[in-house]
Amino acid sequence: MLSLQEISDRLEIQDLMVRYSHAVDTKQWDLLDEVFTADAHIDYSAMGGAVGDVASTKAFLAQMLPNFPAFQHLISNSSITVDGDTATGRTMCHNPMLVSNGDGQQRIMFCGLWYLDTFARIDDQWRIARRIEEKSYMYLTPPTPGMG
């Protein structure tokens, strides 16, 4: 049976993951400073992205994501293990992204991945200390005339 503290910790970590998705999907890069630890290591390389710290991740996202007219990070199926002031998690992410072609047609790129996270409680707040993406799939739909 889970203790009330572990239930609270798990809910706080799930909320942290939602705040990450919200920050990215609304392009509010500075909110990521409240999601990650100051010395976090972030590895998006499995899906073709950057590897680095919070500052370089924010710069990468700010440069790359404006190329997509729309996108969403849908997270679920979190498996979280709490051990005092640290925790680990594996969370599924479904990330559809709209891709515009130069000829006015649009396509959807479906990205399926898992976030492999290490969390740390700092000053009574959970933060992501390490995030590694694990690729499941990437699929680009054929161009659709009139979509857009």
Rank of each mutant, 00 (worst) to 15 (best):
M1Q: 07
M1P: 05
L2I: 13
D9W: 02
R10E: 11
R10Q: 15
L11W: 13
Q14L: 14
Q14G: 11
L16H: 03
L16M: 06
A23F: 03
V24E: 00
D25A: 06
T26H: 15
T26M: 09
D33P: 05
T37R: 03
A38W: 03
D39K: 12
H41F: 10
S45F: 09
G48Y: 13
A50H: 11
V51A: 02
V54D: 02
K58S: 05
A62C: 08
Q63Y: 09
L65C: 08
P66Q: 10
N67D: 14
F68P: 02
N77H: 11
S79C: 14
T81M: 12
D85A: 11
T86C: 10
A87P: 00
T88F: 10
G89F: 00
G89K: 00
R90C: 10
H94C: 12
P96F: 04
P96R: 02
V99F: 07
Q105W: 05
Q105E: 12
Q106T: 14
M109K: 09
Y115T: 00
L116T: 04
D117W: 02
D123Y: 09
D124H: 14
Q125W: 09
W126S: 00
I128G: 00
R130F: 15
R130T: 12
R130N: 13
E134H: 15
Y139N: 07
T144H: 13
G148S: 12
